[in-house]
Simulated assay, not measured.
Amino acid sequence: MNLLIAEYVISNEPTEDSRKLLSEAYAMVSSAYRVFKEYVDTRILISKEYRNLFNVKESSIIYSAGFIESLERFSKNFDYIVLIAPPLALIEASKIVGNDRLLGPTYEIIKSFSLKDLGYSILRKIAVKVPQHTVFTGNEDAELIKLPVIVKPVDSTGSLGTFLVNRFQDLKKFIKLSLKFSKIGKVIVQEYIEGVHGSISVITDGDDILLLTNNVQIIEFDEKGKIVYRGGVVFLRNPELHEKSMELTEKIIKSVKGFRGYFGIDLVWNSWEPYVVEVNPRITTSFVGLAKILGKDLGCLMLKSVNSNVKCEIRRNIEGYVGFIKEREKLLIKFCNDFHGLIISLKY
């Protein structure tokens, strides 16, 4: 049994924009490699320019001629493929790979939730709370919008092109600026939800659900309105939070068929009620922290979620917290048994 890890930044030639995402890309790919290699013959799709980043044998490398091009060429040679990519590339890649080889949500789920406006529409139909929102292409009248709002591309990843707008006179400017980050020319203008920014990490086979952890996200708002995702802390241990998160996760998975493997839910806790701001049908940055604590158990759980016959034993007693924060071009990762001590060590 063999597996390919294909990540968009690592497997394409470097560009000025992609270098800004390199630290997260490297952390996710290297974490995935560590948790899978104990169970399956694991390879990494890598552009030659990034070969020196990885201390792995040459036999573990597939040299890339481009993310999509290489998947078209090599995907049929693997039993399973882990895809990590921005929305439009993820949709295209998952269609090429096909559901039988995807180690994660199906193509149908990826297509539905990679674009934020489509994802919100599905969630509202199943009575999941999402921010009130409007889609703009640039020419619509914005006079009826109630401030403050978040402006972001429907097809972006992370916090690229995302802004907090408090003044009406700035709204059109930020819509125009955010549109520059959208490859399909659409942005969402959504109500700003006060609360705690968090996420949920889940593994499922479509029936059984393992809510791995609740996480805290570290979000910064600069004076110019730009919103920046800096990192987070994984493995919160709050029974009430877990119960509410499980209820939300079950509603989504049971109502929308095709979820499997690992996926993440970004949300805001407002008065301890969850508002979903995004469903990520792929490995997310929180995976890095989970891999630090769970190790190879994480890989085993993901393989089992797609009916792999892998044999392994899962540890039951999990201790500690992992924080990760981006400082310039590096992603700093820290483990600590004390939550408050970890927050202080991250200097946040």
Rank of each mutant, 00 (worst) to 15 (best):
A93Q: 01
S23P: 05
N55Q: 15
A32G: 15
I10T: 04
L83T: 03
K95D: 10
F36M: 10
T106V: 07
V29Q: 07
S60I: 07
I46R: 00
S60P: 07
I109Q: 07
E13V: 12
S75D: 12
E13N: 11
I46N: 02
I96C: 02
D100Y: 13
I61H: 07
A65P: 13
R73N: 13
R19S: 10
L103F: 10
L45I: 09
L21R: 01
S11H: 04
Y80H: 14
S60Q: 13
L103R: 11
V82Y: 08
A93D: 00
K57F: 13
G104Q: 11
G104F: 12
Y26V: 06
N52C: 10
G104R: 09
V29D: 03
A89W: 00
N77I: 13
L45G: 03
S70D: 05
P14Q: 02
S47T: 10
L103A: 14
N99I: 13
V97D: 02
T42I: 07
V97L: 03
Y80G: 09
L83Y: 02
L53R: 10
S64C: 09
S18V: 01
T15L: 04
A27H: 04
P14S: 06
D41H: 14
V29T: 09
L90D: 02
D17Y: 05
S23Y: 00
Y80W: 11
I84M: 08
N99P: 11
N52M: 11
T15Q: 03
F67K: 01
N99Q: 12
A85H: 01
K76H: 15
L71E: 00
V56S: 10
P14C: 01
D79Q: 14
V40E: 11
